[in-house]
Structure formats: structure tokens, C-alpha cells
């Protein structure tokens, strides 16, 4: 990087130097402005989370102080404990994680197999079928919502976690698209060689392809977890028994029952966000690895 720059500044013509210096000053100003705006916006984005935690640590009197205290006068750490007993917090968490785990298993296995079928087996018509499949992403979920509810109801599935989990075993067009992109980067010579050696398609998927796409699978698992963890509508419709509720439904109940207890609601919300934040900081690397894999072109 340094070498070309020294060559540029070494250009003897004085006019060129003037032009370049102006440029550098303008660049500096632009960068400064960008820096100020980005920092201001970043603070604005952090603020709601900051306010969440601060409010969670206040007493039921302090939250109504005007003007509000920027830091809690006497941090009420027990608010977090109280929040977990006002609602059946740990059960809701367990339910959410159970649904997420099953959905991840379903999504990852089904999408891998489907993506392999689209990307690695050369069968006639695969591209047109893939396009049709992919276009269903654009279908508003509301159209299938009511018939599916009625079908699940007649099967006795409403009030169980099955409607939230079973569909994940039948693929998801978006994740299939993502995995297909990854699978297509693997050189065909690799799988053709295995085929000539007499390996079955399942064997090739298992022993040749799978080890190479593991980072992509991690990305799919992660996004599936995020989707399940954030979902509200589907649990609202299908989970009627409180024993099965997810954390999102639990938080909404908290709001209905103790709406004035803002500090406890904030404590519960903080706790509900925590797993997601921890997961994000632990898996940033997975994202990067997944992106790096797209560079595998050879």
C-alpha cells in the first residue's frame, strides 16, 4: 500500500501536488463529518439498550422521577431475580430453546440435503424448479396462515409445539439458496472423483461436501435460532397452554399483568435479550468464516 503512494507524492509537477493536497484536506473533512455522524448515530442506537438496563436497576419509585436519573441511585440487582419469579421465566426460556433446537436440527438437515440436490446433482430442469422454489420467499405468510391453522387444528396439533417445529424439516427457500451458493463453490472434480471411486451421493454429501460447508451450516443454524427466538406471531397462534409458552409470549404476559412495574419489565426484557447478545459476541467469528468460504473459488 505504501509504495504507490510514495510514487504519487514524488510527482514533481507543482500543480499536481496542489491538487492532491486539496484532495487530502477535503477527504479529511469528509471523514471527520462521517465520523461525527456515525458516532452520534451509534450513541442513539445504543441508548435504548442503555436505558433498558438502567431502568431495570431502579426502584419502583425512582423510575417515575422527573427528570429521570441517568444512573440508578441505588442499583436494585434483585429486580432481575424478581422478574424471573413474576413470570415463569426459566420455563419460557427452556421452551424457547427447545423449539429453537428442534428447528435448527430440522432446518440444517433438510436444507443441506435439498441444496445438495440443487447444486451438486446435474439433473434436467433443476434450475427452473429452483427458481419456482425460491420465488415462494415472496409469498406473504398470511395467505397460508389460516389454512395451515385449520389443518393443524384438525390434526390436533394446535396447543403443541409441532406446528412451530415440523415445517422446518421440509426446508426453507432462503437457507437453501444460501447453502446452494456455498455448495456451488466446491470444485466438481472433487465430487466427480469420489463418484468414480464408487461413492454414493449420500456418502459424497456426508464425507466430502459436509466438512467443507460446515461454516455455512453454522450460519444457517445461527439465523434459524435468531428467527425462532424473535418470533411472536406463530407462538401466539399455536401455543395456547402457558406451560409451552416462549419467552416472547411470556414478556407480553408480563406487560399485561404488571404493566406499571416498568423496572421489572425492563429486567425481564434485559434477561430475554442476554442470550442473543452473548451468542452474537461468541459467533461473530462464524459469520466471518462463512463469508471467507465464498472466496473458495479455485
Amino acid at each position: 500500500m505504501a509504495a504507490p503512494q510514495t510514487i504519487r507524492t514524488a510527482v514533481p509537477a507543482p500543480v499536481a501536488i496542489d491538487w492532491r493536497q486539496n484532495r487530502i484536506i477535503i477527504e479529511r473533512i469528509k471523514q471527520g463529518v462521517a465520523y461525527v455522524i456515525c458516532t452520534a448515530m451509534a450513541l442513539a442506537f445504543v441508548f435504548p439498550l442503555y436505558w433498558l438496563v438502567v431502568t431495570a436497576l431502579k426502584t419502583d419509585l425512582e423510575i417515575f422521577l422527573v427528570p429521570p436519573s441517568i444512573l440508578p441511585v441505588n442499583p436494585q440487582w434483585q429486580n432481575f431475580y424478581q422478574a424471573t419469579i413474576y413470570i415463569d421465566f426459566w420455563r419460557f426460556m427452556f421452551n424457547t430453546f427447545a423449539i429453537a433446537a428442534l428447528s435448527i436440527i430440522g432446518t440444517v438437515t433438510s436444507c443441506t440435503v435439498i441444496a445438495y440436490g440443487f447444486a451438486r446433482i446435474r439433473w434436467p430442469g433443476r434450475n427452473i424448479i429452483f427458481l419456482i422454489y425460491l420465488s415462494t420467499i415472496m409469498l406473504p405468510a398470511q395467505v397460508t396462515l389460516i389454512p395451515l391453522y385449520i389443518t393443524y387444528r384438525s390434526m390436533g396439533w394446535v396447543g403443541t409445539i409441532l406446528p412451530l417445529v415440523v415445517p422446518s424439516f421440509f426446508g426453507n427457500p432462503f437457507f437453501v439458496f444460501l447453502l446452494r451458493q456455498f455448495l456451488m463453490t466446491i470444485p466438481h472434480e472433487l465430487t466427480d472423483a469420489a463418484r468414480i471411486d464408487g461413492a454414493s451421493e449420500v456418502g459424497i454429501l456426508r464425507y466430502v461436501v459436509l466438512p467443507l460447508v460446515r461454516p455455512a451450516l453454522a450460519t444457517v443454524a445461527l439465523f434459524t435460532f435468531v428467527n425462532v427466538y424473535r418470533d411472536y406471531l406463530a407462538p401466539l397462534i399455536y401455543l395456547q397452554n402457558q406451560d409451552q409458552w416462549t419467552i416472547s409470549l411470556g414478556l407480553k404476559m408480563f406487560q399485561n399483568m404488571y404493566g406499571a412495574q416498568w423496572q421489572l419489565m425492563m429486567a425481564a426484557s434485559t434477561l430475554a435479550m442476554l442470550p442473543m447478545l452473548i451468542l452474537f459476541f461468541l459467533t461473530q467469528r462464524t459469520f466471518i468464516k462463512g463469508i471467507a468460504l465464498t472466496g473458495l473459488k479455485e
Binding site: F45, L49, W51, R230, M266, A272, M273, L277
Partner: peptide, 24 residues
């Protein structure tokens, strides 16, 4: 750091974040 800050709100549980915004 900026990337993380702008990204995190979009992965928090919607209900939890909505409750914060009700308070704001």
C-alpha cells in the same frame, strides 16, 4: 464496533425491544 452497534437491535427479541420503546 459501529457494525456491531447497528446490527444488534435487529437481532434482539421484538417483544423485549418493543417494551423498551414503550417506555421511551
Amino acid at each position: 464496533i459501529y457494525r456491531t452497534i447497528f446490527y444488534i437491535p435487529s437481532i434482539t427479541p421484538v417483544v423485549a425491544s418493543a417494551i423498551v420503546w414503550m417506555w421511551l
